[in-house]
């Protein structure tokens, strides 16, 4: 009897995970939609505190992987561990606790259009914590200013903001509970190069300030060069290579060569050398 109880408790309490254990660990994951198989036995590790850039062809399953890690897409097979816990084996409450430690920035921001920016940022606070209005207002403004928006934006509706401001406001919302992992789905797409550069800087700064782990789906070669510690490349439903940008550039894999040494990429590199 006592034995049963201890095992139950051991399962319930988050066991201590060693620091060097990957914060996200994906093993042999298969996802298909009808006949079409998108992920075919994919393995991936994300280390604590790194910014991982995730690249792959359009429609190749980058967002699908991200969505299956955060539980929006059902996988057919495989194991996903977040913070060292197998997400399939967790109860509803434990899963919610894990979700609280993750922030997600959707491709188009996904701010609630009927709420102001302030209400959007406060939404997770209001749902999860019992705080005074004053403190919630102050936290919202603090987050807003940390992502580089002026405080008056707080009273605006998402439809009154530009694309770059929406991304920043959505990032503020994703960060309001100080998550340990942030998922970014093409954070710099649709931004001008200056704003995109600033966004990369911002993510780096926030990663250092808040000790974040960042999982970034991106197509932006500049982001890959300047912001990411490590890059994982997806092709044919599998990870074909992982490593820092230098390794990617040296790789002989045809897809990687086409990606990093294609016309756009090389003109950029040459431009940098000149």
């Amino acid at each position: 009897m006592a034995n049963v109880e201890t095992t139950a408790q051991a399962q319930k309490r988050p066991q201590k995970v060693p620091d060097n254990y990957p914060i996200i660990r994906v093993r042999d994951i298969w996802v298909s939609f009808g006949e079409h198989t998108v992920l075919k036995g994919l393995d991936l590790d994300v280390k604590r505190g790194e910014i991982l850039g995730f690249v792959g062809a359009s429609g190749g399953g980058k967002s699908v992987l991200m969505r299956s890690i955060i539980g929006l897409v059902k996988k057919q097979k495989g194991v996903i561990e977040v913070f060292g816990h197998d997400v399939d084996k967790l109860s509803e409450d434990e899963l919610q606790a894990i979700e609280r430690r993750c922030g997600v920035l959707f491709q188009h921001g996904a701010l609630f259009s009927s709420l102001t920016v302030r209400q959007n940022i406060q939404f997770p606070l209001r749902e999860y914590l019992d705080l005074s209005e004053r403190l919630m207002d102050e936290i919202a403004i603090a987050k807003l200013e940390m992502v580089g928006l002026p405080a008056f934006v707080a009273e605006k509706y998402p439809s009154q903001l530009s694309g770059g401001m929406i991304k920043r406001a959505a990032l503020a919302r994703a960060l309001v509970l100080d998550p340990e992992i942030v998922f970014l789905d093409e954070p710099t797409s649709g931004l001008d190069p200056i704003s995109a550069g600033e966004f990369d800087e911002l993510i780096k700064a926030l990663q250092q300030t808040l000790g974040l782990t960042v999982f970034m789906v991106t197509h932006d070669l500049d982001s890959l060069h300047s912001a990411c510690d490590r890059i994982a490349a997806l092709a044919d439903g599998k990870i074909i290579a992982t490593g820092p940008i230098g390794d990617m550039l040296k790789s002989d894999h045809p897809w990687l060569r086409a990606y990093f040494h294609g016309k756009r990429a090389s003109s950029r590199l040459n431009g940098k050398k000149a």
Binding site: E138, I141, A142, L144, E145, M146, P150, A151, F152, A154, E155, A205, Q208, T209, L210, G211
Partner: peptide, 21 residues
């Protein structure tokens, strides 16, 4: 390790740029 965070927070809620309702 929390120094950067505190410095960052010190820059916020300075009351400028707000619109009074």
């Amino acid at each position: 390790r929390y120094k950067i965070l505190l410095d960052e927070v010190k820059q916020t809620n300075t009351g400028k740029d707000t619109e009074e309702e």
